[in-house]
């Protein structure tokens, strides 16, 4: 197990984007706060005379949770991009520079190696996303409360523990969901990464695009295209279908009460899509291990 952690550590040494990208995001956020260029979503509309004071107490919390969860969404999307390129590079970079021959000279099994890289994409990167989201929340809370204080609004509202905790919980659940949702995509990218003679990006993307266009031209249906786009971009729908319904149903501020940030997740965990996806991820991962193990390392 200790060896596995070292393998994970090696990945973090090599792929600096895993921590540099969120650091840049936070840095930008701090900069925004310092320059006073803050848009606090619903709050900015309500500043002024009426102010936060007229918003009922429970809705204040809800609003803040929505703001914090939205913030986390931005951070998570950036980490999603990091994860995408990490997965494509994971089993290819060391073949490109031939250092795979060094790694293979150590008594490490290829299963361990591939699983450690999969763990980085599915556990470490989401955890970094989660951590960065929490820091982002705190930055916004600090910046927001400072601004409220300047405008004579109740600054402490931003720091309400229920709101911070609520934002954190929603983000945690979303990270977990994203990890499960994207597991098969990560498995697929890693298989392409292990297999591609060169340019894993094209080797990963072209078959998918080819199938999609081929199906449209030859059969005239869009099953493949729909499937791919739902797997790639459908997560937002999964995360927020009920939340959006809440926005639409309600009228004005009172509608917020109907916003259900976690309800759609319950639907997701009960769906066969999730479980078939995980099965597919497992198979793709086995494929990646097999290719990594048995491909001829020709120099």
């Amino acid at each position: 197990m200790n060896r596995f952690l070292w393998l994970v550590r090696r990945e973090i040494w090599e792929h600096k984007a895993i921590w540099v990208a969120p650091a840049i995001v936070i840095g930008c956020l701090v900069l925004l706060m310092l320059t006073g260029n803050v848009h606090l979503g619903p709050f900015t509309d309500m500043s002024g005379e009426a102010g936060l004071g007229v918003v009922p107490d429970d809705l204040q919390v809800k609003l803040l949770v929505i703001v914090y969860a939205g913030l986390a969404l931005v951070v998570s999307m950036i980490m999603g991009i990091v994860g995408f390129f990490y997965s494509l590079d994971a089993l290819y970079a060391d073949r490109r520079d031939r250092s795979v021959l060094f790694w293979k000279s150590l008594p490490l099994s290829d299963a361990e190696t591939v699983l450690s890289k999969f763990a980085v994409a599915t556990v470490v990167i989401p955890m970094v996303a989660l951590g960065a989201s929490m820091v982002a929340q705190l930055v916004v809370a600090a910046g927001g409360s400072a601004r409220f204080a300047i405008e004579g609004l109740p600054a402490a509202a931003m720091w309400r523990p229920e709101a911070l905790f609520g934002g954190f919980t929603v983000t945690f659940l979303r990270c977990l969901t994203a990890m499960l949702w994207y597991a098969p995509i990560i498995g697929y990218l890693m298989l392409a990464s292990a297999w591609a003679p060169r340019g894993p990006f094209l080797w990963a993307v072209l078959p998918a695009v080819g199938l999609w266009i081929g199906e449209r031209v030859i059969v005239g249906s869009t099953f493949v295209g729909d499937f791919i786009s739902s797997r790639l971009f459908g997560l937002y729908g999964v995360l927020s279908s009920r939340a959006e319904a809440g926005f639409e149903d309600g009228e004005g501020l009172e509608g917020l009460r109907n916003v259900d940030l976690v309800g759609s997740l319950r639907d997701f965990y009960a769906s066969p899509e999730l479980w078939f996806g995980l099965l597919a991820a497992g198979l793709l991962l086995l494929g990646a291990i097999w290719v990594r193990r048995y491909r001829d390392e020709t120099s």
């Binding site: 040494w13 090599e14 060391d94 520079d97 031939r98 250092s99 795979v100 021959l101 060094f102 790694w103 293979k104 000279s105 150590l106 008594p107 490490l108 099994s109 290829d110 120099s299």
Partner: peptide, 19 residues
């Protein structure tokens, strides 16, 4: 995997990871 416990190799001097 078992073999690599007792066998060591240098395939080419350039193979140490550069990063």
């Amino acid at each position: 995997h078992r073999l690599m416990q007792d066998v060591c190799f240098i395939a080419d001097v350039a193979v140490l990871p550069r990063w």
